[in-house]
Amino acid sequence: MTELEQNVEQQIKQLQEEVAQLKSKIEAVENTNKDQLSMAVVSGDMDKILATMVIALAAAAMDTEVKLFFSFWSLSALRDKNKTAPNKNLISKMFGMMLPKGRNKLKLSKLNMAGMGPMMIKSLMKKQNVLSLDEMFKQADELGVEITICEMSMNLMGFKKEEMIDYSHLRYAGAATFVGDAGESSAQLFI
């Protein structure tokens, strides 16, 4: 092989590497700003969960992919009132007793008035034909809204997988999953 040929071969190799690098960069760019909404839901107040679900449903109705990341207080909303988890330690049991068991037991962030507020809101919602939280979760599941439970905070609060709601698009993951999803989403919200 002459020196010239060797040179050409090396240059071709270099070019191929550069093309491959560019390709992966383009793919990364194409993956950002997807028609996708990522929400980090941290609050466990009834009003905040309502807002979360209304926005999620509206986005899903517009064919935007929706990914909800539930963490800390919001996990109360994902507890199934009919389920119990076995083998809990004392602190977990205490947390479980003190925190709302399920979306229908959530408190309002304002005007809770020892449970009067949520009762009034629920009756107003019914009167004004607003979907109930039960109905909203059902619709969200039908529309493929994904709910991810932050496993770390679930363990921290002493909740277990066995006591979470039946929801077909439910998964468990860590914060990096939210960061990844949010990175490719065109909209991100923190509630």
Partner: peptide, 13 residues
């Protein structure tokens, strides 16, 4: 008519 936002949008979809 029997449903408030975002109900109508969901039904339209």
């Amino acid at each position: 008519r029997g449903t408030a936002c975002p109900g109508p949008l969901l039904e339209a979809k």
